[in-house]
Design a protein around this nucleic acid. Structure first.
Lengths: 338, 338
DNA sequence: ATCAGTAATATGAACGTTCAAATCCAACAA
DNA sequence: TTGTTGGATTTGAACGTTCATATTACTGAT
């Protein structure tokens, strides 16, 4: 399999009997050509199937039309089920702007910042897209310091570039609690995991604010990890405690799955005997009975906003001045009860 | 944000008091340098943080160190839950070989082949990785015709390049049926969707072969689509029919979720009253009670094999002579019954 | 017919790298 | 001394674009 070099601009120029630059203009600045020349040249381009070499173009112009997305070295047995959908949305948004997404992960033993540096140094990409942002994220600090374009799904610190897009989890959970309060619930519980994920903190904050606002009695429970057994155990404890709450706000659908399990074990009917609301709208919840009231993440809008911010930074050199908080979409289903 | 050009090989050469080529050699062919020169030059490289410009390198060498993965224009509301895990594994395998994964999707209205052509013509990538292969896949035909390196997760036609890797679903399902037969089941059912996915055909074939081999009575049911309601309805029909099977082989865990639902509605106990086995080992099944007997896809091995094949084709110019069939891993859990 | 002014196209150089060939420099044999 | 050898390093060219500048062709006014 020889390194078959393709059709070059020179080939096209010769075939069309014009100069290189005329071909280049036909593609990049058609208005400079006399209409008939443009037509003739375009025909030849089409015929030879010419398309500019991206490497050569990048070398000259400095722009790659590529956005890097460093994937977290995720727990392989428990991949984030929303990741696929998020990536889909990002690829679609970027694609419409003529950009592609480059996935990478640090080599074993290499830090994520180092991997990012490598990509910057090699001038392989135009910008970075980050998700799973920590409160004090080393990657964000690194990219800010380097002055390299980036945007994040998840809030960054106030002193850092405000290139983030996030879901207003706090408000969404306040709304969930509001729904419970409106249905007469007084004792409500929040179920979380102890892993320190900022978005879980937001959801917890929302719970606390909601409880305060509606004068409810709130309890908080945590499972030590994401493991189903741990989640079910934590829920069981919650359900067996004295002063059992009449409603549970799960920090995520994944946790809610544990509540369904534990409730069944305990003979408690979700919806009637126990109200349950959660967050994420995982596809799998569509099998649950009764169906789960939850909050859907506007992944498409998030992706679109992220890409828009990124391209604005890259192409216009203007960094976003403020973060963007998008509302989650309340999906009300029977688990909420009447 | 100026188009801050980086450190070039020329800068390093000047700083080290040697020529361009010496720097190039220090990185690409260190043995050509006198050890002391190498050390001195390496120090300067390190100090200036020099890293060769990927575009320039690609332009000269013709190799991009990028593998393209065209993402299917997936149903956004029902993303493939395994996609995230598969991508993770591919990114990891490729990363270890110094390759990155480029995600793309056709622009609205553009065919996938057209999008592939664009990438080839622009010489943006070294190879393609395809999944969700159809029996007669246009993309595969296209890439074969173009003679461009590629590999597929999913079998291709015998007359096409055998660059595929796949799971031996047929054998895995035969094994599942064997487990059922060994437990005395005689009437077994296969539950599928009617969407023509080759891997579902394989699983169906496995079911038929297993039934035949063990002299069982097999029935086949189909839900018209992936929608939970449809799946539950199909299962209900299955459970209510006369000669209700004592065991169900679900074509995938997603379908098995419907069986859990329908069985609960019908008051049938999975494990004791009805054996259930499935395929995929989706993370969510870990919440099911009783836990689901299923087949785990060796995603890591699949990714590794795919990348190995790809790189062999790209770097050594040798196309794989035969496909690779990897065994699925039987995960036996209580839903199988005693 | 001449000239200015503009529209259309062509030419040379440069982006940063690596390959091929050339040069330089010891070390050593004749 | 002269030449030979082989290792270490340098030089020129090329990869395929696009930018800046130069050239040519056309238009219309004098």
């Amino acid at each position: 399999m020889a390194a078959r070099r393709g059709v070059t601009i020179e080939d096209v120029a010769r075939a069309a009997g014009v100069s290189r630059q005329t071909i280049s203009n036909a593609l990049n600045a058609p208005h400079r050509l006399k209409p008939e020349t443009l037509e003739r040249v375009s025909a030849v381009i089409e015929e030879l199937g010419y398309s500019p070499d991206q490497s050569a173009r990048s070398l000259k112009s400095g722009t790659k039309r590529i956005i890097a997305y460093p994937t977290a070295a995720d727990d392989p047995d428990n991949p984030n089920p929303l990741m696929g959908g998020f990536l889909e949305a990002v690829v679609a948004s970027a694609g419409e702007a003529g950009y592609r997404i480059l996935l990478l992960r640090p080599r074993p033993g290499q830090s994520e910042e180092r991997a990012i540096d490598e990509l910057i140094a090699a001038r392989s990409v135009d910008a970075f897209l980050l998700s799973d942002i920590l409160r004090d994220d080393a990657r964000v600090a690194h990219l800010s310091a380097a002055g390299f374009p980036f945007a994040t799904f998840g809030r960054t610190l106030p002193e850092q570039p405000q290139a983030w897009v996030d879901v207003d989890s706090v408000q969404a959970v306040i709304d969930l609690v509001g729904l419970l309060a409106a249905r007469g619930h007084r004792r409500v519980a929040f179920l979380a995991t102890t892993r320190d994920q900022p978005w879980m903190e937001d959801r917890r904050d929302g719970f606390r604010a909601g409880v305060r606002r509606h004068g409810l009695v709130g309890q908080e429970y945590s499972a030590p990890g994401d493991d189903p057994a741990e989640i079910v155990a934590a829920t069981r404890e919650l359900l067996r405690g004295r002063n059992r709450p009449t409603a549970i706000v799960a920090g995520g659908d994944w946790l809610a799955l544990g509540v369904y399990s534990a409730a069944r074990e305990e003979g408690i009917e979700i919806g009637s005997g126990l109200a349950l609301v959660a967050f994420d709208d995982l596809p799998v919840t569509r099998f649950l009975q009764p169906a789960l009231t939850t909050v859907r993440l506007p992944l498409r809008q998030i992706a679109q906003a992220l890409v828009a911010r990124l391209l604005q930074t890259v192409e216009d050199g203007v960094a976003p001045q403020a973060g963007l908080l998008l509302p989650g979409e309340l999906v009300i289903r029977p688990s909420l009860g009447a």
